[in-house]
Design a protein around this nucleic acid. Structure first.
Lengths: 167, 167
DNA sequence: ACTATATAGTGCGATGTCGCACTTTATGTC
DNA sequence: GACATAAAGTGCGACATCGCACTATATAGT
């Protein structure tokens, strides 16, 4: 299972305790994001079959949306995980019969990942299983999630660019 | 190391592909949040000494901000991790001399976690080490992070409440 | 007081993540 | 074409996370 950890949600912090306002605000934003990401993962994973992780769904979902036939390395890059991790994740998908691996005709070192019908069906069911939770969140949330999206996307793009330029 | 995985950042999705607008927007928000959380963890961990994880910093930071003397279980709850995970994390902190564990005088089953001077110094250094990255993000970010904070906090609170009411 | 149940912490085993090193194949240089 | 270097994928080992089961202690009901 996965990733977790940010600052505990239990405490609201005072600004200017140890940082200027804007750094402090950014730090808090990243904190909240870490916590939300953790809670989201837990929530979603509870709706998936036993032993199936968000990583599995994410790869299948990616292949459905952007097309299969991708190589393992392309997938690893898309998800920002080491190739060994992708190897492991893909082996789980193969074991469950949700994808098949074929040699890549363009490059004998490489492979291609293809979806099976069972794999597509798994995605449909996972999405359906998550639906009620999304509805409940929307009911309780006193704001339109769409208002958050542009800012988050911008932040993600900035972080992505930094990652590229740093390594 | 830790948590990762969301949908790959590589593709922007069309609304109404398979969900009504608001569900789709919420799903995208959670996706972006997952990716940002992952990138943030990677970034921060690169600034920490070898083998030191965000989990270590988070616990120390929590103790500095909200006061030490907490029990391991209180910490586990604050961070939403199983108690076994907290046991493991704390053992790492003890090993590095950043906290000490003492029996809890109020409850002989329990313990209390106390910061050491070295532990406080580690926190200072970690924060200092992260500073330049925060500055760089702020320079590249064409918006004030403070504008994101209220919405994220609200979303986190909703998810927190749901967790409580579900289990 | 006695007993049943709940709680705090931990050891252990299973599994996910990821760095390192290796094999196989591609690419670039001469 | 021969050779050095790079890239794709995987085996292996280290380690983090976490469920299960266990011990020790507290609490509740009688």
């Amino acid at each position: 299972m996965g990733r977790r950890w940010a600052s505990a949600r239990a405490g609201r912090w005072k600004a200017n305790d140890w940082m200027p306002d804007d750094k402090d605000a950014l730090f808090k934003v990243m904190n909240e994001i870490g916590i939300i990401g953790q809670l989201t993962t837990t929530l979603f994973e509870a709706r998936l079959p036993d032993g199936v992780l968000v990583s599995h769904f994410s790869v299948i979902n990616h292949l459905v949306r952007l097309g299969d036939g991708r190589t393992p390395l392309q997938l690893a890059r898309a998800f920002q995980v080491p190739k060994t991790t992708m190897t492991h994740t893909l082996s789980g998908l193969v074991k469950r019969g949700w994808v098949t691996m074929a040699p890549n005709p363009r490059d004998a070192r490489s492979k291609q990942v293809f979806l099976t019908d069972t794999g597509r069906r798994f995605r449909e069911e996972a999405i359906a299983a998550l639906g009620p939770d999304l509805v409940e969140i929307l009911q309780r949330l006193p704001l339109d999630p769409a208002t958050l999206l542009p800012g988050l996307t911008t932040l993600r793009q900035v972080l992505d660019k930094m990652r590229e330029s740093h390594d």
